[in-house]
């Protein structure tokens, strides 16, 4: 076991630097430390000006996603030990404009997320007196996988299409749309289809599949997008072959 391990951390201080630079920090190596623990050590002991996001340090909040040695990872769930002997290169998530050091601007993702209406859409809410909306275990199983998404945006960082075409609505937003589409209580399928059947919706995706590889929660956004394509195609043929049944 080594005594220390080296981190090469991307620094971007726009007031001082036109381009990001890498700064090397030697931190104590501990077998039970994650990359996030090492970053916290730097901030507490070596350089208090280092900026990065984190909150729960237990893989639930989805804030601490960064590029670690070029791979999008949750830094709170990545052991230093896995990355021996180092150095470990830490960069902000790919695909998002960098505000400072390891902090990206995620406004674009939040705007896209709201566009797919990530809530249960009802044409008419039933009165409270009638009780809750019931659901069977089979109906829950239909969408449960997609409800695991923690909005960590690792899938956006893994997706070359999002990097190339910033208008692409992206893996997580589509998987989350499917989470509500497949929910037996929801009636918003058509509204979401109007958003997602555009080129910037599902059709920009070419099934690279990396979004599902990096997903820490096994949501499989790539699968969700292909399933959406199948459904949208069926919908298209139905509306062409039976025009009288259109809205």
């Amino acid at each position: 076991m080594p005594e220390t391990i080296t981190l090469e951390v991307q620094r971007y201080r726009p007031e001082d630097e036109a381009e990001p630079v890498f700064e090397r920090f030697d931190v104590p190596f501990r077998a039970d430390w994650m990359v996030l623990d090492a970053l916290n050590y730097i901030k507490d002991n070596l350089d208090g000006t280092l900026s990065y996001r984190w909150a729960c340090r237990m893989g639930v909040c989805g804030s601490c996603g960064m590029m670690v040695n070029g791979q999008p990872l949750l830094t709170c769930a990545t052991y230093l030990e896995r990355l021996l002997p180092g150095p470990i290169r830490v960069e902000p998530l790919k695909g998002f404009p960098v505000i400072r050091d390891l902090v990206g601007d995620i406004t674009d993702f939040l705007e896209k997320l709201s566009r797919v209406k990530p809530w249960i859409v009802r044409e008419e809410e039933k009165p409270l007196a009638e009780g809750e909306y019931l659901q069977t275990p089979e109906q829950l199983a239909d969408y449960e996988q997609y409800s695991m998404c923690i909005n960590c945006m690792l899938c956006y960082a893994a997706c070359p299409i999002y990097e190339l075409e910033p208008d692409f609505i992206g893996p997580a937003a589509i998987a989350i749309a499917q989470r509500y589409n497949l929910d037996s209580r929801d009636e918003g399928v058509q509204e979401r289809l109007d958003v997602l059947s555009q080129h910037d919706g599902i059709w920009a995706c070419t099934f690279v599949g990396e979004c599902s590889v990096v997903c820490p929660k096994n949501v499989d956004p790539a699968g969700a997008i292909q399933r959406y394509k199948v459904a949208a195609t069926a919908d298209w043929f139905k509306s062409v072959l039976t025009p009288w049944a259109n809205r």
């Binding site: 109007d194 059947s197 555009q198 080129h199 059709w203 394509k229 949208a232 195609t233 919908d235 298209w236 043929f237 509306s239």
Partner: peptide
């Protein structure tokens, strides 16, 4: 808007 040609082209592609 719903008359995007993508579903048709994608059907040919997957077929």
């Amino acid at each position: 808007m719903r008359r995007s040609r993508e579903p048709f082209l994608w059907a040919l592609f997957s077929g």
